[in-house]
Every structure is written in structure tokens, then in C-alpha cells.
Nucleic acid binder design. Sequence first.
DNA 1: CGTTCCATG
DNA 2: CATGTAACG
Lengths: 267, 267
Amino acid sequence: MPHIITTVNVNGVRAAAKKGLLEWLTDSQADVVCLQETRASDVQLRETLAPALDAGWHVASAEPSAKGRNGVAVLSRRPADAVRIGFGDDEFADAGRYLEADFDALTVGSLYLPTGEAETPKQEQKERFMASFAAHLGRSADAAAAAGREVLVCGDWNIAHTERDIKNWKGNVKKSGFLPGERAWVDGLLTEGAWVDVVRKLHPEVDGPYSWWSYRGKAFDTDAGWRIDYHLTTPGLAERVKEARVERAATYAERWSDHAPVTVQFR
Amino acid sequence: MPHIITTVNVNGVRAAAKKGLLEWLTDSQADVVCLQETRASDVQLRETLAPALDAGWHVASAEPSAKGRNGVAVLSRRPADAVRIGFGDDEFADAGRYLEADFDALTVGSLYLPTGEAETPKQEQKERFMASFAAHLGRSADAAAAAGREVLVCGDWNIAHTERDIKNWKGNVKKSGFLPGERAWVDGLLTEGAWVDVVRKLHPEVDGPYSWWSYRGKAFDTDAGWRIDYHLTTPGLAERVKEARVERAATYAERWSDHAPVTVQFR
DNA sequence: CGTTCCATG
DNA sequence: CATGTAACG
């Protein structure tokens, strides 16, 4: 079973690969790397990742129906036992926003939750996705418990959960990504330990660690970021979490994404 | 009166400026430089050319109504006495395809004739432009003769006149830019010496010199080009032409346009 | 094959 | 402020 799992929104895998993603991957100790916003077809993704595939990585991907948008993937050092695209909602079936891959008794999900914009139809779409995906998580947790399996769902959730998860929380209370309803939705996922935010579990008292910084202005340099990339795990797996870190340095020399990789390690 | 005049289609002045246009301009001995396909608003053009303007160049420009398309300009070491945009045809009035500037007894025109595509509405538009512009050239020649002035119209005519003006002429007889009707239209302009193609006058027997090479393949390296950038002058001025050259080397180290500057010098 | 625009983030 | 795409050349 994989012990080190990283998630990173690459904001265009082709651009990221030109700027350092592949070198970062070469240095990575991860067993599984979940990618979001590949913004590439399956063919383009394989072409871009060819050096990594040659080096032994396997890839499973969910291609977006709209060219140059969304796209999620799971890279792994050995092939997944099974791969499932989508989460049973026809509206988002071919959006390239969710993919699950099984490795022994562990299921890993790579999620790219929609961006919203308060008071617009985009926000309604985000909320439809949230409702539907929460139902999937519920079913998934129940099925895993019944089958003695564990589940880890990581990716870009596009929601900062608490005031600790966003540098300028006061300035964003009416902005999509920090709306009360969105934060309450995350509360609901974590209720009674159904799911555990394992980075927060390990670092309960710190601000951040942020995983996304706008490209505008000097947000990265001043660490004016958001923690919107999470690893949520089933409770049994959460008990085994050993270490978690945001690899801010990965994008420090040359920034190859506006997100940084978030890595968790399990016993 | 200016004695050295250059024309160059820059294929986007902002991109060209980043890659060497301004250095070429610094080294240029020209008194007047006509630009085509600036693909910029007047404001963007001035921002882009700011170093040249600081160095003493003056600019007159015809902004395109469609953003990022067309656009012609005349740079000069002293301000023009008068500037006229367009050539009296309402259809093309704000297309950013023609500009005239007066310097003493010389009028200089910067032309970007439309690209065509055989058997399509684009070709019909090109031919409407050609008919209308030929009428303007006729009026212009008559007026110049009556007033004892000379006229030079340079730019990207998007037509290779003869078999000498295109490397692979056999492969292009049905392609816009080398259609019989287009070539005959140029014949008509030159009839009875009303207008003189001064580069060809100086170099009657050579193939080329080409002034445009496709970016595709190795067209530039193999000199598989087209001569579509001309200086047409009134007969009196043609008598004074001393030297003409295509500055192919200007774009050799780093190609800042798919066209090369064409420079003529007068006594 | 390159430029610029657009929608999206 | 960066991505990919499109129309255009």
C-alpha cells in the first residue's frame, strides 16, 4: 500500500512540465501523486509526462470534455488495481474533475472541485457539485468501512475551511472559496470523524500551511495564501498519518504552478 | 526630403520589439520607416516604440478598428507635414491598412493590402480593396504630377508579381497572392510607367529578392520566399533611385518577423 | 508556426 | 498574472 501521497494542482501540465514539474517529480519520494488542472487530453498528458512514464511512473487520467480545461490524474509507482472516472453524477461525468484509483486496500481520489463566483450561476454549479460529491463521499466511507478498506480523497477543494486556512480571511468572507455555506459544507464532511483533514490534524494550531497563492501582486512572496488543497481520509487511515508538509520550495526557484504540492506520509 | 526609406511588416509590433525590432531600428540609416501589421492600438504602439520616440523618431499611425489586427504606421526622423488615414473608401476607412504622410514635396504611403484566400469571400474583399486602391493610386499620381510632387507607396502588397517574385511559383498559381488576376492588377499599376517598382528596376534579372518567408518548415533557411513587399514610386522619383536591398540579415540572428525590411535609397 | 485575443482561473 | 484556445496570417 502506498505510504507517501502528494496532491498538486499543476495549472496546466504542459506549461508546468516546461518549468520544473518533471524535475520535482524526479526528486519526489511519493508513491502516488494526484494532479489537478492538467488542462490536457489523455494523449497530451502522456506526451507531456513521457520522461516520467519512461522512468517507471504509471498514470490514470480523467480527460475533460472541454479542451484545455480541468483534467485530473493519478500517477503511481505501480499500476492501480482499478480506476473509476467521475462519481456517479451525470452532470459532471466527463468534466475531468474526479478520478479514483485503487491500490490494495486503499482507494485514492484526485479531485478538482469547481471554482465559484458568489451570486452567479457558477456558484450554483459549484454547490450542485458539492452536494453531489458529499453524497459520494458518504457512500464511499460506508462502503470502505464495510469492506475493511481505507479511502484518501485529495485535491483542490477550492474552499478554505477556517480562518486559519486563509491569510486575509476578513477580506474574503463574501468571496467564493470562503463563503459560510462552503465552510459549513466542509464541517459536515468532518462531522463525527467520518473524514479527517490529516494536514490539519497534524498541525492544529498553525496558520496555513497555505497551498495556493494568486499570481497577482506579491502574494507568494508575502505568503498571502489559501489552504484549499486537502487530503481527507477515512478515520482508520488518519490514525496512521505520520507527517504532512506543503512543498512550497518546489515552486520557489521557478514557479511552475500557483499551487504547491501537499504531501502526507503514513505509517 | 527623406532619402532612405524602409518598409517592413512587423507581424505584431509588441512581439517584434521584444525580439530585436528596436535594435534594428537603432542601427537603421533610414529617414522614414513604414510599418505594417503593428497589431496594436495607437497607445500600445507608442508604448512599444517609446525608446525609439525618446531617441527622436516621430510616429504617425492608423489604428485598426478590430483589436490585434492590421495596423500601419510611418516612423520618421522629423514630423510629417501632414498625415492622412485611409484612401477614401468607407469600407476600409478604419481597417488600419493605409496611411499617408507628407514630407516636403514627397508623400509616403504605408500599405497593408488584405490577405486573400482563393474562391472565398476573403478573396472578394481583397479584390474590392485592390480595385478601390488602384483608383486611389491613379488619383494620387495625377495630383502629384499636377502639383510637382512625388509619391512613394510601400508596404505589404500580398501579391507576388512575376515568376521571379516567388521561389515556388508553379506550386502557387492557384493560391491567393499569385493568382493571374492579382498579377495583372500589378501590371496595370505599372502600365506606361505610371508607377515604378523600384527594387525590380534596380535588379531586373534576379530571382527575388524575397521579403517574406513562411514560419512553417525551413522556408527561411532555404530562401523559399515571396517578394510581396514593394516600393512603388512616381516616375520622377524612380529616376533618382540609387540602391535597394532586402535586409534579410536583420531577422537572421533572432527572427522578429516573418518579413524582412526592404530599403531603398534615393539621390 | 507565430501573434494576439478571449475565457477561465 | 498565468493558462490554453481561437482566428488569423
